[in-house]
Computed example of a mutant assay.
Amino acid sequence: MASIPTLTMNDGRSIPQIGYGCWQIPEDKAPGLVGDALKAGYRLIDTAAAYGNEAGVGKGIRDSGVPRAEIFLTTKLWNDRQGPDAAKAFEESLAKLGLDYVDLYLIHWPCPQRRLFVETWKAMIALLDAGKIKSIGVSNFTDEHLATLVGETGVTPAVNQIELHPYFQRQDARAADKARGIVTEAWSPLGRGEELKDPVIAEIAKAHGKSPAQVILRWHIQIGVVVIPKSANPQRIVENISIFDFTLSPEEMARIGMLDKPSGRIGPDPATFC
């Protein structure tokens, strides 16, 4: 089993650079699949209240036999619980997980029109101080949102989880996160499948004897972000983490870099979604 590299967050804690994403994983399938992921070597597990599978994810962690201290668990606060309900929503997530703490808690979307993300962030800082969360961060925040958050509270998120894949490479967002000392984490890292058919990716994959998915995930590792592929296929779960026995050359990285598209976004726009 390959050793998984980690990145150091701005609070001094480390986060594994690849994790198992639980989006669209059914509640009843989550315990087994999370167990499969932990057996394959993943130590970062990413879920969210909105995924409706926190109880199953927690059971998978508890039943895995892997010491809790070795697992980095992330969950997220959904949009309708921002503001006064934030602390209660966290307690509900923790109860569903059946665990004593989470390693990383994220605001799932900024929902700027609600103007509640600063109040929500203050509630998360209090939970952090209480020891129920080890690190706090955000998801889908633009640099403008981050500037407001830091300016109002003085506390910088440890992580910003954003849509990021070869067709939507987010160079400006990554640079802005880096300037603030924030780790960028990629959701939908494979572009929901479209990039797997790209001829450039396919050619590089063939050269290395790897799958297109493995090449894309390796690209994420080499640009320095955390990546959380999801799969309900146990073989694919193993394949996705088997990316530490090859390296993409500077030329190959440059070729993938040229795949970026202005219209590459496939998820909602953080400026308007809520």
Rank of each mutant, 00 (worst) to 15 (best):
I61N: 02
I228D: 00
T120S: 14
T120C: 03
I204D: 01
I125P: 04
A126T: 15
V102L: 05
Q82T: 08
Q214R: 04
L164C: 15
S93D: 13
P189K: 01
L33R: 07
A126M: 03
D143P: 02
G151M: 05
V227H: 07
T184I: 07
P84E: 13
N10A: 06
G12D: 11
P250D: 14
T75V: 10
A232T: 14
G35F: 03
N160F: 02
A86E: 10
G21W: 05
L217E: 02
L33N: 06
Q24Y: 06
A130Y: 03
I223Y: 01
A123V: 01
N240D: 14
L196C: 09
A176N: 08
D103F: 06
L128M: 06
A271I: 03
I223D: 08
H165L: 10
I133H: 00
A55W: 01
E92S: 12
E251P: 01
A69S: 15
A49K: 13
A254N: 10
A126W: 00
R170Q: 15
N160Y: 10
L99W: 12
W109T: 06
R174V: 12
G32Y: 01
C274R: 06
A86S: 14
R13C: 05
S231C: 07
P270H: 12
G264M: 13
V225W: 03
D172N: 11
P212A: 05
L164G: 02
G267K: 13
A186K: 07
D63L: 02
I182W: 09
A55F: 02
R13F: 12
A213F: 00
A48E: 10
A179K: 12
H145N: 15
T120P: 05
L38G: 08
K206P: 11
W78A: 01
H220S: 03
W109E: 08
C111L: 01
N10T: 10
S3M: 12
Y105L: 05
T156G: 04
I223S: 04
K39C: 02
K122L: 12
L128Y: 08
T156C: 12
S14L: 11
